[in-house]
Amino acid sequence: MDPVEVVEGDVSVLDRADVDTDQIIPKQFLKRIERTGFGEFLFYDWIRDGEIELEPNPILVAGANFGSGSSREHAVWAIADFGFKAVIAPSFSDIFYANSTKNGLLAVIVPPEHCRGIAAAGRARIDLDDQTVDYEGGVVRFEIEEDVKHRLLGGHDEISITLQDAEAIDAYEAAHPMLGRPTTAI
């Protein structure tokens, strides 16, 4: 994962609430076994049916509960592959938010009035270290977990970080034997 510190540029607007991952990347594209190349299928039906138009700007602003539904990380891969570096919304589904943080896509939660302000300004600057979004007409601070921020700023691989705790995992396993039968022996 590449480090992220600042995302700055034009804003694309998707003024809808409850945008679910079935819309972000429809199921027929989940059959691919690679991590790349999902961008051209982003919002496939909505874009092809002429319901929405989206420029691949650095920032996408959307409505509340963005990324609801399925856990498919393909939704994050598609958004990033399309060209977005950050999504700003009043709220995100838990799984989509977690998936974003594993891929260096900034998911930034700001109140609806600032979302509208950023959409109207058409341009914004997100500073991860400062935890602020700057736009013409306002500046707003956003919250992010300290360890997630640290990982994004450093572009660190989460598995490598966890494996530094390998001894703790060994100790946990030694102290907590399985109750039932192993899946390999049923």
């Binding site: 539904g69 990380e73 393909h74 994050v76 799984i95 977690a98 998936n99 494996l163 995992i169």
Partner: peptide
């Protein structure tokens, strides 16, 4: 899979994860 919440019916803590987390659990069981 997001519908992993199903297994909570047994008094388990069960939830869906993304593919990066699938890899994390495969590698570390945490």
């Amino acid at each position: 899979d997001s519908h992993t919440s199903t297994h909570g019916a047994f008094g388990a803590l069960a939830f869906g994860i993304g593919t990066s987390e699938v890899e994390h659990v495969l590698a570390t069981q945490t």
